[in-house]
Write a protein that binds this DNA or RNA. Structure first.
Lengths: 253, 253
DNA sequence: ACATGAATATTGGAT
DNA sequence: ATCCAATTTTCATGT
């Protein structure tokens, strides 16, 4: 996996390394050291000379990491064109993207480490606890929202957005359900209120609105009540505790 | 800046390296090679054995990068507790966070590269083109929204959120302005509509609503019109072209 | 290409 | 601690 490794290269050695590895393709490039970074595109930024880590992946994504924080200081999700120059004895890398037109320019002042690796194809990855998974589970078992609930539609489009779950309750009333995988905020309440109003106008009868989430903020619950809407607690992941005998979201179908 | 560098270390060497560098503190650790990664917390995920890059920063942030993509495959913005074990000849790192309770577990199967670096303090960084900057510019020169506009308040709080700019027009009518630094969507329109309705209820007179953004989606403009609200084009960054003689957002005060 | 909404969103600010 | 809104959000998905 390790292809090349330079320890404190000078500008010339770094330039040769970058030229070779970029031409070869399929490389993960890591460069750590003192750099200056400029960005111009949707916004514009300038980073003074400091210690950064540049990571360039085979898909053309680029990120510059500062000493702190999970998010890169500068980044580019894709680059359409990469160029290298020598500017006054410094290696300068310019990564451009066509649409939107953006540019990240990295000037290497003092490089501690430059590594080229050739990673294999991406391996398998599974994620549990997404909103999509909640939606599938509740589609299979709508009675987990309330007994007698009969599902009519999933992701029902309206002109103010898609309704997560659309159903009829045991008394024959229509129910709009808005799902959130994490704590719901007042935005979710407003989203639900818009759907309920729109459906209610369309069918000419009162429609219930249910916010289904593991929890909600206090202001969200207040607003929900004021608007005559309802909250139903639904977990996104099974409990850490041993699974009990009650039927739940996460039982096999 | 470079403190230590291991080339294809075995499990024992990697364990010693990690113990030392974690104890020393203030280190940027990069480990590239074959790993298996588990995450459990707000969601849960499992990554099969594959080539990944682990980056651990002095602030306790951790990210595991896959061969593609700008976003890490797994991450943790902060870690409260880091532990190392040897499990069947493999080094295993467990990073835990207390609130919310989350855990990332990385098992190192075959390590290509392990590097420890000691970056200096973060250097200066400036970003232009944020919504906050637009707000400051328009606060200084509200006439850029329309002639005769008199600013009454900035970030005026309501029970449905903060109003970006609150003003009175040359005819004495109240105006609520919602700012977006990039293309505005129907969500921004709904946000504006909520503010306008709330203020209008509170003062008992009609209130204008203006969406100020560089552009807006077609559905957003349609909804805006249907709700009797207005659009005003405002750029977030100066033009690429030479600055002309007209007064603009980006002139010095 | 455009619009929409989720995300383990993260981050910073206000209360 | 909680809540809120911005973000160069990125990303997948549907039209």
């Amino acid at each position: 996996m390790l292809i090349d490794l330079l320890h404190e290269p000078d500008a010339e050695a770094l330039l040769v390394f970058l030229r070779e590895q970029l031409r070869a393709g399929g490389r993960w490039l890591q460069i750590a050291g003192e750099m200056e970074v400029l960005y111009h595109g949707r916004a514009a930024s300038s980073a003074d000379a400091g210690d950064y880590l540049l990571l360039l992946k085979p898909d053309g994504s680029l990120q510059v990491h500062a000493p702190r924080g999970i998010k890169p200081l500068n980044w580019q999700p894709r680059t359409d064109e990469l160029s290298l120059e020598l500017d006054g004895g410094r290696v300068v890398l310019v990564a451009e993207r066509a649409s939107p037109h953006e540019l990240v320019r990295v000037a290497f002042l003092d490089t501690a480490l430059a590594a080229a690796l050739a990673p294999r194809e991406e391996a398998g990855f599974v994620l549990q606890g997404s909103e999509a998974e909640m939606q599938r589970a509740l589609t299979r078992s709508p009675e987990l929202i309330e007994p007698g609930l009969e599902l009519l539609d999933v992701e029902l489009p309206t002109d103010v957005g898609g309704i997560d779950l659309f159903a009829r309750d045991r008394h024959g009333r229509l129910v709009v359900v808005e799902l959130k995988r994490a704590k719901a905020t007042h935005e979710a309440v407003h989203q639900l209120a818009r759907y309920v109003q729109r459906v209610s106008e369309a069918v000419g009868e009162p429609v219930r609105g249910v916010l289904a989430a593991p929890e909600a903020t206090v202001p969200a619950l207040e607003r929900l009540g004021a608007l005559g809407l309802e909250f139903r607690e639904v977990a996104a992941l099974p409990l850490d505790e041993a699974v009990d005998a009650q039927p739940g979201l996460f039982d096999p179908p």
